[in-house]
């Protein structure tokens, strides 16, 4: 190897910055992370390739994600799920999502969905988060997600089984790992 320093390509820069937001999103649930490269596709590109399965109900996005080599599959088999949580009809299948098993709780789904992310006092469903990554507790308001979703989430998660969730709003992203306890206020 030469002694010169290696520098990142544009693709490296995009993927590294995006992953930073994804990582801190799960490490600090409910804290808003900034996406340097907004858009669901950038999120997908930093994580997915031919070794992954995904589900996406948006045709244009689906095509973009498929170009990473990831395989489109029915929602019940998907490791990465790109979906809208805006109304109950569209997430009626969420009870079938992969939640892992006791030997491999990581064999589970990650959901990506658009939302309206408010602060502690914003409009939308007001949530109180606690658990790993949260210093004490944290309040956040989430709009654009059917309020009944949160009850469905707590029913699906039997820790360590469960799925992890990311919500995006333009260049803003928040994460909700399965370890987070969410109280609807």
């Amino acid at each position: 190897m030469t002694q010169t320093l290696l520098v990142p390509t544009a693709e490296d820069i995009r993927a590294n910055a995006t992953f930073d937001a994804l990582m801190w999103g799960l490490a600090r649930p409910g804290l808003v992370q900034t996406l340097a490269f907004p858009g669901m596709l950038a999120l997908a590109e930093s994580l997915l390739d031919r070794e992954c399965t995904f589900f996406c109900c948006d045709e244009a996005l689906k095509e973009g994600i498929a170009a990473t080599g990831a395989q489109a599959v029915p929602i019940a088999e998907a490791e990465y799920v790109f979906i809208s949580l805006e109304n109950g009809l569209q997430f009626s299948d969420l009870s079938d999502l992969l939640v892992g098993n006791l030997l491999y709780p990581d064999a589970s789904a990650t959901i990506f969905a658009p939302a309206v992310i408010g602060g502690a006092t914003g409009s939308g469903t007001r949530l109180r988060l606690s658990g790993p990554g949260v210093n004490g507790s944290l309040d956040i308001a989430i709009g654009g997600v059917d309020p009944s979703f949160w009850a469905l989430r707590s029913k699906a998660a039997r820790y360590p089984l469960g799925w992890d969730l990311y919500l995006t709003d333009g260049d803003r992203l928040v994460g909700f790992p399965r370890s987070t306890e969410i109280e609807v206020l």
Binding site: L22, M23, L26, A27, D106, S108, P160, D164, P177, R178
Partner: peptide, 12 residues
Amino acid sequence: MRRRILKAIAIP
């Protein structure tokens, strides 16, 4: 690595 790190964080 990224996919695995995220799972590791989600299940401390």
